[in-house]
Design a protein around this nucleic acid. Structure first.
Lengths: 218, 218
DNA sequence: TAGATTGTTAATCGATTAACAATC
DNA sequence: TAGATTGTTAATCGATTAACAATC
């Protein structure tokens, strides 16, 4: 039974909580308060408590949160308590990089199949995975129970690849191509296009020749 | 003279507008209404008009927006009407991938220097750029007027690299490492950690063995 | 018991959307 | 002129923060 709809903002904070908690766990810290977490993350402690409270009562009044227990709970909420299999299309540099980050394994996310549209790439290897042709996508996704697709092809191919992922039945797509993808509502799209990140970063630069001092007005 | 403080949400939408407008421009579309843009981007037309109105009056009543003119204006706002130089630390797979995307050049963002902490990497080449040791960072950033730093090193090195970027005087950092970086307020940090993207994507998966049908309640 | 800290309600703040006069 | 669409104000919606009773 789902509680009141959880907002995206909340969901996007959960992995950050997890990151800090993991780091604390590795330093053998047993217990943490929302205040300490808030300080580390630059977030309001009330927000952290509220976020967690959407999913249950994980803390103890007067004490705080048990680090290990909270990790476990957040992993359950994010569904990374089970292994989740991922397929990647686009065996270029970026695809390579992501495959090497199979340190996700710590988070139970595993890239277990790699595809490419280019004949020249097919049959080559990334780590121990053979690059397969797109014609194999549907079969492999079904057989391996792959639930998430990653797109690292050029923008003009991205929609086509997305269509094939949807057709194959993935539930979510992580898209690195600088393209706006159309998929059915039941498939979740997450965009991770760093060209846009760079552009929005540029906004905060100080225009050359402009006073850098913004504190001259109070 | 800055208008009322522009919210981050607005700034993050500007690159998306730019992307769609560029695509329209390449198809030789002259004019676009907020309604059409809204449809393409799945955004409320009023929001688009409001976003743009923060920066000036770019449209014409009864007509819409001139595509080319609006592109020009958004590029000015984002400050990519000038060339912005970028340095990258971490000549691994991901660093490689980003360098190859020097198709940013279209957006006037250029990676003009690459560094690494590992002696084994130093002296090798990425495209035409030689990988330099960190000891050169401050000098090169100053000499080339580099304003943005990209971090693609492992998490445990990231803070150290960030410190050196700050020291060298960059104004913004794009961080790909799964680490929370502390920098002075005047330096802008943008996180682009796809491990977190993947985790939040997992949240939207349907738990195995759970009914997928969410429409049984109205 | 006194001190700390949660979970939660109420207050505030900010962002999105609707509505419409202005005008091309 | 009639139709379209902006820029902007007002209304709504949602997210963040403050405050505090409950309780460890």
């Amino acid at each position: 039974m789902k509680q009141t709809k959880i907002s995206e903002a909340v969901v996007r904070r959960l992995p950050i909580y997890l990151q800090v908690l993991n780091e604390m766990h590795s330093r053998e810290i047993q217990t943490v308060s929302s205040q300490e977490l808030g300080y580390k993350l630059d977030l309001n402690p009330a927000q952290i408590r509220k976020d967690l409270a959407y999913f249950g009562e994980f803390g103890r009044k007067g004490i705080g949160y048990d680090v290990q227990y909270l990790i476990e709970k957040i992993r359950q909420i994010l569904k990374v308590d089970q292994t989740i299999k991922v397929a990647l299309v686009g065996a270029g540099n970026l695809g390579h990089a992501l495959c090497n980050y199979n340190k996700y394994s710590k988070d139970n996310m595993q890239i277990t199949a790699v595809f490419d549209v280019l004949p020249s790439k097919i049959g080559s290897h990334i780590n121990s995975l053979k690059v397969l042709p797109m014609s194999e996508l549907a079969r492999v996704v079904a057989e391996q129970n792959i639930r998430i697709g990653i797109i690292t092809v050029p923008a003009f191919e991205a929609q086509n690849v997305a269509n094939q992922f949807v057709e194959a039945g993935v539930e979510g797509i992580l898209n690195f191509a600088p393209a706006i993808l159309r998929v059915p509502d039941e498939v979740r799209i997450q965009n991770a296009d760093f060209t846009k990140e760079l552009l929005s970063l540029a906004y905060y630069l100080v225009r050359e020749g402009e006073a850098e001092n913004e504190s001259d007005l109070d």
